[in-house]
Design a protein around this nucleic acid. Structure first.
Lengths: 129, 129
DNA sequence: GTTTTATTCAACCAAATCGTTGATAAACAG
DNA sequence: CTGTTTATCAACGATTTGGTTGAATAAAAC
């Protein structure tokens, strides 16, 4: 599969860099959570938080440059819209690696089970280890 | 910075904070990618990169404190193991919000379709972008 | 014992990050 | 035009981050 190996700088990796970096800030993640409920302007987004409007404006710029949100225009307002596809790219990255780990785990399980020829207990996946 | 006093900040949120922050660094994500292929020691992990062993050691500490990896012991070595469940928690967070956005989008689509009484121009929906 | 291997700790430094205040721009309302 | 709302830009300071080198620890090998 794709799974960017040791490539120096693909555009895709740059995009992931920006997106994960954007989500590393708790306030930005709360903005994302808020935007999941519906589009909102900068003022609306800033209102619940104990920071200045300028700080929120900066955070939104980061989210926008990371491709996580898009912005339109309504008079003086600039409503923000959360981009579902961008979130999907992040889950795809994470889930690809998660699946690799689980596959390896299952193969190890199978190996252990096959080598245990004097027992035969069911080796079902145990949810959380 | 968020107020520590007025905000209870659940343990779950703290865990997400650490995990997303851990993944915000490109080198740490490459370590994760490497560990998805199989467990590895600090030396093995550091070898492909142009940074010192100590730098990688620090990064691994961050990943460990974020719960993304666990570590065992084999003589002087401390092999790292990628935690699939931790990756799963991140995808769950992202995907929850992604689904909210898509549901809202679909409802808006349906509303627009039902209100179209004098036109019938096709409202194309952009599947993947 | 001494030395080698594997990893971490400690101190330090440059650069990035996050927040602030103050000024500016753009679109409206009067 | 004057003033208000909405949002951004610019400069600054405090803190965090990611890297380095050098010393320290722990287990193994000699």
């Amino acid at each position: 599969m794709e799974t960017a190996t040791a490539n120096p700088k693909t555009a895709e990796e740059t995009r992931l860099n920006r997106a994960f970096a954007a989500l590393s800030d708790p306030l930005r993640r709360r903005l994302v959570a808020r935007l999941a409920q519906g589009d909102a302007t900068v003022n609306e987004l800033a209102e619940p938080f104990a920071v200045t409007l300028q700080a929120v404006s900066k955070h939104l710029k980061v989210l926008e440059e990371a491709g996580l949100i898009t912005r339109s225009r309504d008079a003086q307002r600039r409503p923000c819209h959360l981009d579902a596809a961008a979130l999907g790219r992040l889950t795809a990255w994470l889930d690809g690696y998660r699946q690799l780990v689980e596959e390896r785990y299952e193969r190890l399980d199978a190996l252990l089970a096959s080598e245990e020829h004097h027992h035969d207990h069911d080796q079902d996946h145990p949810g959380q280890r």
